[in-house]
């Protein structure tokens, strides 16, 4: 009997000790993503801006090409670059568009011939898509975890094989 009471006491103490642990807690910290963009073929003349752009949802209509659907814009990539490694935490184009935890379903490299950053669909050409197994017609979602960096968000831009363009 005394052994059992000892056992119960030990279990009771264990319960009290673990009661200090609150289990899962919200993660704090900045979320980010990183990767490499590889450019194949020659750059078109007249390109003023090349950005990696993250949208929450795929662009199914011209209305989806909007600030509401825009998650993040990377700093402009220099003209003629062959390979570009990036980390979103260091290369955020505008504080208005900060990457947030969640699923982001359309990540592209887009180019514009206008010097200003516009949200006019006709100003932009998608030249690379974050996708499954090289099939640029199948965009891949990117998951951003709280306080963590999602790595290997790699995109290949093949100027000789452009991806399908979203609706104008």
């Amino acid at each position: 009997m005394s052994k059992l009471l000892t056992l119960i006491s030990v279990l009771g103490l264990t319960v009290l000790m673990i009661s200090c642990d609150k289990g899962i807690e919200p993660v704090e910290g900045k979320s980010a993503f990183s990767g490499k963009i590889v450019f194949k073929g020659g750059w078109l003349a007249g390109i003023k801006r090349t950005h990696l752009v993250v949208f929450k949802e795929p662009i199914r209509s011209v209305n989806d090409f909007s600030a509401a659907n825009l998650s993040f814009v990377l700093d402009s990539i220099p003209y003629g670059t062959k390979e570009f490694s990036y980390n979103s935490s260091d290369m955020q184009f505008s504080p208005i568009f900060s990457i947030t935890p969640g699923s982001h379903k359309y990540i592209v490299v887009a180019q514009s011939k206008t010097p200003e950053l516009t949200l006019i669909r006709a100003d932009w050409t998608v030249v690379g898509v974050y996708c499954e197994s090289g099939d640029q017609s199948k965009p891949k979602a990117m998951i951003i975890n709280t306080g963590k960096t999602t790595a290997n968000v790699n995109i290949t831009v093949d100027f000789n094989n452009p991806p399908p363009q979203p609706p104008m």
């Binding site: 009661s19 899962i24 993660v27 935890p101 969640g102 709280t146």
Partner: peptide, 17 residues
């Protein structure tokens, strides 16, 4: 599944009283 669920890998032992 972690491609669907943000912070989905937050697993802990279970202690319930």
């Amino acid at each position: 599944m972690l491609l669907i669920v943000v912070d989905g890998d937050m697993r802990v032992p279970i202690y319930v009283t």
